[in-house]
Design a protein around this nucleic acid. Structure first.
Length: 304
DNA sequence: AAGGTGTTCAACCGCAGATTA
DNA sequence: CTAATCTGCGGTTGAACACCT
């Protein structure tokens, strides 16, 4: 018998001593909450036995930590939180609980779900390994600047780098903000911050600038900076000529994309031609729209 | 309207390290 | 010191729901 069918039939064995499984009821939640408020959140097996709940200690702990605990945040992840997850995952990999420690109110389970359902989904659609360098570069080059832009748009008075920022951005985000590509082209501004990098006279150049501090802070980050050819090659690898994702990402030659050695520790610009700028924006938009539609659904669900 | 398919996320599982007796 | 138990972690599952045909 599957665990789910066991759960569904559990109402018929109310009088048995079998452990309950599956979704928690309101009564169980209340019982657990009341018990913890009186005895604290420890000794889960003892709690499970003496509270009257027919659940394992593990199940009680999980329910409390992931759902019932008062400081657990509900609702969609903010761009700030998403950015943190992307960056911290690039540093630590699937260390969900460690990542969760930097997102107050968010659980490791929630972060893990976010990664699997949003980030890995994109990788699957692109037919590319989510752990590959190419995908990580895509996140850094396109997705993260978009999230930064979104943070700026949602609170324009609180530039991440501003001294007067009213929003309490984490040091990691501030560091990240100064290290991510600064993107502008033909009036398209991904990040509304003055940049010393200029658009070329033809207006067909996208500039990326980087902050060497990033590499002192995160020397092991796989998100290394890219030069012109690097980004162009990457983007061409993502798409066929007709602006559709290539099915041949696995043939992408990563060896040709290794950034020059002399880059590290130095400021460097990176140019992307107009063709690839369009491609990059299309990709960013697809990620963006997915994010927007998801948040819209969340709002609808919250309102109903 | 009904059935199929895809997505999300709460909950479970197995394992490993920490703690306790 | 050792075995038993507890706790926490990361991977996986499946019910519920949304969307599509």
């Amino acid at each position: 018998m599957s665990s789910s069918s066991k759960t569904l039939s559990s109402s018929s064995d109310e009088d048995s001593h079998e452990l309950r499984r599956g979704p928690w009821t309101l009564e169980e939640d209340t019982l657990l909450t009341n018990y913890i408020s009186g005895h604290g959140e420890r000794h889960w097996n003892l709690l499970a036995k003496s509270s009257g709940l027919r659940r394992t200690g593990k199940s009680c702990r999980l329910r409390w930590l992931n759902y019932l605990k008062p400081d657990v945040k509900r609702g969609n992840l903010t761009p700030h939180e998403q950015l943190l997850i992307l960056e911290l995952h690039s540093k630590w990999g699937n260390r969900w609980s460690k990542i969760a420690q930097h997102l107050p109110g968010r659980t490791d389970n929630e972060i893990k779900n976010y990664w699997r359902t949003r980030v890995q989904k994109q990788a699957r659609h692109m037919k590319i390994d989510s752990n590959s360098t190419a995908f990580q570069e895509m996140i850094r080059c396109i997705w993260m600047p978009r999230l930064l832009q979104k943070m700026q748009v949602s609170s324009p008075s609180s530039s991440i780098l501003s001294q007067n920022s009213t929003v309490n951005h984490s040091p990691i985000i501030k560091q990240l903000s100064s290290s991510l590509p600064q993107v502008s082209l033909n009036g398209h501004v991904l990040k509304s911050r003055d940049t010393s990098q200029s658009i070329s006279s033809t207006g067909s150049i996208m500039n990326f600038s980087h902050n060497p501090q990033m590499f002192a802070e995160y020397p092991s980050s796989p998100f290394v900076a890219m030069d012109n050819n690097y980004v162009n090659t990457f983007l061409k690898g993502c798409y066929n000529g007709d602006n559709h994702f290539s099915n041949g990402m696995e043939n992408f030659n990563l060896a040709s994309m290794v950034p020059p050695e002399e880059f590290e520790g130095s400021l460097r610009g990176c140019h992307v031609d107009e063709y690839n700028w369009t491609i990059a924006n299309n990709l960013a938009d697809s990620l963006w729209n997915m994010d927007e539609s998801w948040q819209f659904r969340q709002l609808q669900e919250r309102d109903t």
